[in-house]
C-alpha cells in the first residue's frame, strides 16, 4: 500500500468537475505525468494509479465493485482505499492518492 502524499512538492490539483463523475463511474486523468483513475463508488471518491501492478496494463476499463476495481486483463483486484492487491495474479499494491472536493471540483493530491 502506498499513498503518494508525502512529497514536499505534492499539492492538490483540480482534475474533474464533480458533476462529470456520476455515481458508479470512473475517469482516467493525467496529472503531472502520473496516470490516475478517479472513481465514484457508493458516494465516495477514490483516486488510484491507473496502472495494474501485475502487468502494467491500464485499469480504466475494469469493473468497479464495492470498494475495489478489477483489472480487465487478468482479473487482479485492488482495494480502492488502500491500493492493496486483493487477489492473484497481482501481489503488489498500486498507488493511491488523497482526493477532496472544493467548489464542486474534484481535487487530487499529487
Amino acid at each position: 500500500m502506498s499513498t503518494e502524499t508525502s512529497a514536499a512538492s505534492a499539492q492538490f490539483e483540480r482534475v474533474l468537475k464533480l458533476a462529470d463523475l456520476p455515481a458508479g463511474s470512473k475517469k482516467a486523468v493525467e496529472i503531472n505525468g502520473k496516470c490516475v483513475l478517479v472513481c465514484n463508488v457508493n458516494s465516495k471518491l477514490f483516486a488510484i494509479s491507473n496502472i495494474c501492478s501485475h502487468n502494467e496494463k491500464p485499469l480504466e476499463r475494469g469493473r468497479l465493485g464495492n470498494g475495489w476495481i478489477a483489472c480487465p486483463t487478468h482479473g487482479a483486484r485492488f482495494d480502492l482505499a488502500t491500493g492493496a492487491a486483493l487477489n492473484l495474479p497481482a501481489k503488489l499494491p498500486v498507488a493511491t492518492f488523497e482526493v477532496r472536493t472544493t467548489d464542486e471540483w474534484i481535487e487530487v493530491l499529487v
Binding site: R63, A70, P72, H74, G75, N87
Partner: peptide
C-alpha cells in the same frame, strides 16, 4: 486458472496470465 478463485470483474476477453 484464467481467473483467481473467489473473484469478480469484467472482461472483454479471458487472457491467461
Amino acid at each position: 486458472k484464467l481467473r483467481a478463485s473467489g473473484t469478480e470483474g469484467n472482461a472483454e476477453e479471458f487472457k491467461c496470465s
